[in-house]
C-alpha cells in the first residue's frame, strides 16, 4: 500500500533530504520545511521506497499538499 505524505501546515520547502528510489525507514526525514521560524522535518510514517517527491526546494506548501509518496 502506498503512503502519501502530506504537509501538516503551511510552510516553505527548505531542503529535500531524500530522492526517488531511496529506501526509507519509519522516522526517516524526507524533506525539511521552514515555518514559524522553525525547521520542521517531514518524516516517513512507514518503511518503503520513495516513489515520488512532489515538491521542490523553495516551494510553498499549503496544509494537505502532497509532499512525497512512499511505496
Amino acid at each position: 500500500m502506498s503512503d502519501e505524505i502530506r504537509a501538516e501546515m503551511v510552510a516553505n520547502v527548505w531542503k529535500i533530504t531524500t530522492e526517488v528510489g531511496a529506501e526509507v525507514n519509519e522516522g526517516d526525514t524526507l524533506v525539511i520545511l521552514e515555518s514559524m521560524k522553525m525547521e520542521i522535518p517531514v518524516i516517513a510514517e512507514s518503511e518503503g521506497t520513495v516513489s515520488q517527491i512532489a515538491v521542490s526546494e523553495g516551494d510553498v506548501v499549503q496544509e494537505g499538499d502532497l509532499i512525497a509518496v512512499i511505496g
Binding site: E8, M9, S35, M36, M38, E39, I40, P41
Partner: peptide, 8 residues
C-alpha cells in the same frame, strides 16, 4: 515536541 509542527 518540536519535531512535529515545530512544536506548535
Amino acid at each position: 515536541n518540536p519535531l512535529r509542527l515545530g512544536g506548535s
